[in-house]
Amino acid sequence: MSVYVSLSVCLEIFFPTADLLGPLHVLVMSSLHSQLSEVLPRSLALPLVEVSRNLGLPPILVHADLVLTNWTKRDPAGPLEIRNLETIISFPGGESLRGFVLVTALVEKAAVPGIKALVQATHAILQPSQDALLQALQQLRLSIQAITGTLGQMHDYVDPDIFYAVIRIFLSGWKDNPAMPAGLTYEGVSQEPLQYSGGSAAQSTALHAFDEFLGVRHGSESADFLHSMRDYMPPSHKAFVEEIRSAPPLREHVLSSAHGHLRTAYNQCLQALADLRSYHLNMVTKYLITAAAKAKSGKLNALPGPPQALEDRGTGGTAVLRFLKSVRDKTLEAILHPRG
């Protein structure tokens, strides 16, 4: 059980120091964005791969680089609020990039009580204590709802045109990416091109842990993609998700319980998670689908559009709306209906 406690503290949240992947990757993506080459020079490839190996991460910009380790307080004694935060590493995108990184960091902060609730709930199932489990599920629901509320700050800080035409290009990887079908050659590392997915919210630990804890089972295509994203997490985060997966199953406990309030609390967590995913769908429609339509019509505020092949894809390489609808619908399917 010590694993649960130590990793929940680790997720509280963000790592204390920024790693070296961010600045190295900015240089990589800048050269690719300029379409200079699909070969990463040895002088960048070797240190990038070495640092990545030491961190247990793939040699590409990931969620942990861009978000978890990429913030600092302006006033060290001040609050963890966006007005008191600044990014450490930046690339084109200006204030919209800052807003995207920092709002996403605050989303992770909002998930911390939910991560703690998973640990508390697991202890409650083992004790067993229905009251403690109910309390933990209520805390999980509130945390998921707080994530949704925090995510809404994107509308205040991130311009859809800039996200679509500028920021998203720097987050796109070279796996399942029609704009770079062969991948990227890391000179001095491999003679063949390597393929890695771009930075994505699917690399965030919290939703993986929530799904495992609540017993949400995704369709095969979505599940395969989500499972692959765990290789883009810091090793301790991936281990935490696997520990939650191997913990006593909450869903079976709820199904076997005669405690009606427990079933209600469980369903409320699932509904909150589905609502979060519906909200994310609406946001992606604004920041991707609507922006893509503006780009095609030439109304993207004089900004160049991304490669046509990327228009309907998420930064991780997914056909994003189909994927998000699938994970939302499978979350709703997990809701337990009344007996009889």
Rank of each mutant, 00 (worst) to 15 (best):
S256D: 12
A110C: 04
H155C: 01
A182E: 15
P304K: 11
H33G: 07
E212R: 15
A77E: 15
M1I: 04
L85F: 13
L21C: 12
I335E: 11
R74S: 07
T315M: 02
I169E: 14
L324P: 01
F170Y: 15
L126H: 01
N177C: 08
L303Q: 08
P59K: 02
L68N: 14
P160G: 02
R328K: 15
G99E: 10
R217W: 04
L270G: 05
E81M: 08
W71Y: 14
G188F: 10
E242Y: 08
Q268P: 00
Y186R: 03
D211W: 01
L300D: 11
R98H: 13
A117L: 06
G56N: 05
L250I: 02
L142K: 12
P249M: 04
D275E: 13
T205H: 03
E86Y: 00
R313S: 05
S52F: 07
S37Y: 00
Y287K: 04
L97S: 07
V101Q: 09
T104D: 10
A121G: 15
A64F: 08
S37G: 01
L11G: 09
N177M: 02
Y287N: 05
S52Y: 07
Y186Q: 05
Q120I: 00
G305L: 00
S31D: 14
N282Y: 03
P249Q: 05
G183R: 06
A105Y: 08
F15W: 06
Y164G: 05
D75E: 15
P306Q: 08
L36E: 15
Y4A: 11
P306N: 07
P235D: 11
E192L: 12
G94A: 09
F91M: 08
P47A: 11
Y196G: 06
T290W: 04
A165S: 15
D231T: 10
Q153P: 00
R277H: 12
N54Q: 08
G22V: 00
L118Y: 01
V5C: 04
